[in-house]
Amino acid sequence: MRVLIVEDEARLARNIAKALRETTLYAVDIATDGEDGLHQGLSNSYDLIVLDLMLPKIDGLEILRGLRGEGRRVPVLILTARDTTQDIIRGLDAGSDDYLTKPFDMGEFLARCKALVRRTYDRPSPVVHVGELSIDTAGRIVTLRGQRIELRAMEYRLLEYLALRAGQVVSRTEILEHLYDFNAETFSNVVEVHISALRRKLEAGSPYALIRTVRGQGYVIGEGPA
């Protein structure tokens, strides 16, 4: 999952990014003014945008209208010091999905982020089942036939993304877009490397493949087009 934080308080943005990277293992981009925020929001495919309202250059609500005007469905969480009911109503009416006022609790903020991402992928339950595999996205716990599987951060990110889109063919470009932030160093076969590592851990001793490769298109987990 990849998140854009539009926040002019650089240290606050850094703290949120740190918490998101460490806890939910999301990839995080930061924009410190409205102009940059709108540009990044339009040019990259994010799974969530955390938006401050009072921003230099372009106001937060303007960014929101710009995104919705361009037909972007990305969930937006407004994170602001404006806490009156009118502000909240205005924010939600402008097309945001959630509203949180500063100062906020980091745990609550993270939980809301996860909930918004679940809804985007139409997965109301925090536990995703794919065959004998179950992934608890809230606690980041992966179990296969009741057996807990330890995954590296990048492996978990990849599995979570594929599992949320179970049954669909996910292209290599999509994986790169949704799992790596703007500054991440990627090498040409990075996706293949992590896919094979996942397969080693999940398909050990199993007669059939959990993750299948659709030649020329990408990867699919679970039941799907052969």
Partner: peptide, 9 residues
């Protein structure tokens, strides 16, 4: 808000 986020992170 910044201080709280710093400490909680």
């Amino acid at each position: 808000a910044i201080m709280k986020s710093t400490l909680q992170a």
